[in-house]
């Protein structure tokens, strides 16, 4: 029985050691595209405000919006605007939301660094994803099977891609479907024939960005909207957010916050006043 006593004492000790009481909690969930920005901002914010505890979870844009409608979290992130179905839900529950764009992004088309193809048209991209183009040779590249990589059908990125590129045609069933931006980028980086689309911040050195309709995704073309797959990233709050939630959004929109956006590879907003919805 001695063992028991010492074990329970140990557990109690550990419990008291790990239970640091924190007053201010902020739960954030949502888009995996927005995740790196929010995570980095949370890190810096907590360093400046040690009494604050922030939990950042992914899940996806739908989860972010759904959770904020259900008030399960304090902030919900999304890589798209609220869609019709969600509008209906909000109307039904009489719970208003506020949307804050916090960064600009573009779905960036990436291929393996050794792939010589430099540009695709929107039409070619559609043909690749619907399975009508099979080989890079058909696009002036090497004799290599095209491995299209798509995202899960309910992700915000897929919705944007679906809307602008696929025109609601189905993705070929042979296309790989991966659960997140990072998985897509990593897989493209070591798969010679692969092509994928990711948030701008995920297009790192190990992959090659290709231009779409001759336009390269970069700050100017994304802000002007010339790049076809430009979009904004949003944080949603209840219509009357808690003080801490407002403070955190203010931080994201401050110069310091916007620098974090750039640091994570995304594009600054260049406008600081929140657009209400």
């Amino acid at each position: 029985m001695k063992i028991f006593r010492s074990v329970s004492v140990l557990i109690l000790l550990l419990f008291s050691a790990t239970c640091t009481r924190v007053e201010n909690k902020l739960k954030i969930a949502g888009s995996t595209t927005v995740l790196p920005i929010v995570q980095a901002a949370a890190e810096v914010y907590m360093e400046q405000h040690p009494q604050v505890s922030i939990s950042v979870r992914g899940g996806g844009s739908s989860i972010g919006i759904k959770s904020i409608i259900g008030r399960i979290v304090d902030l919900g992130s999304a890589s798209r605007q609220i869609n019709e179905r969600e509008m209906k839900l909000i109307a039904a529950q009489e719970k208003n939301l506020q949307a804050f764009p916090i960064a600009r992004d573009a779905l960036t088309i990436i291929v393996h660094p050794d792939n010589p193809v430099l540009n695709l048209t929107t039409g070619q991209l559609r043909l690749i994803y619907t399975g009508e183009l099979h080989n890079w040779q058909q696009l002036g590249g090497p004799n290599l099977t095209i491995i299209p990589i798509s995202r899960d059908v309910s992700s915000g990125s897929f919705e944007v891609f679906n809307h602008f590129i696929l025109d609601s045609l189905s993705v070929a069933s042979g296309a790989m479907v991966l659960a997140s931006n990072n998985a897509v980028a990593t897989t493209v980086s070591y798969t010679p024939g692969a092509i994928g689309y990711v948030g701008y911040g995920y297009a790192h050195e190990q992959v090659k960005i290709i231009t779409l309709d001759g336009i390269r995704p970069q700050a100017e073309s994304i802000i002007s909207g010339d790049y076809p797959l430009s979009r904004q990233l949003y944080i949603y709050t209840p219509d009357k957010p808690e003080q801490l939630a407002s403070d955190f959004i203010a931080f994201l929109l401050s110069e310091e916050g916007q620098n974090i956006v750039t640091q994570q590879g995304f594009i600054k907003l260049h406008q600081t006043e929140p657009a209400n919805e």
Partner: peptide, 12 residues
């Protein structure tokens, strides 16, 4: 993969 991103209560 899909449960995380689907809307609760939808046909999906």
């Amino acid at each position: 993969a899909e449960m995380g991103e689907t809307v609760i209560g939808s046909p999906h």
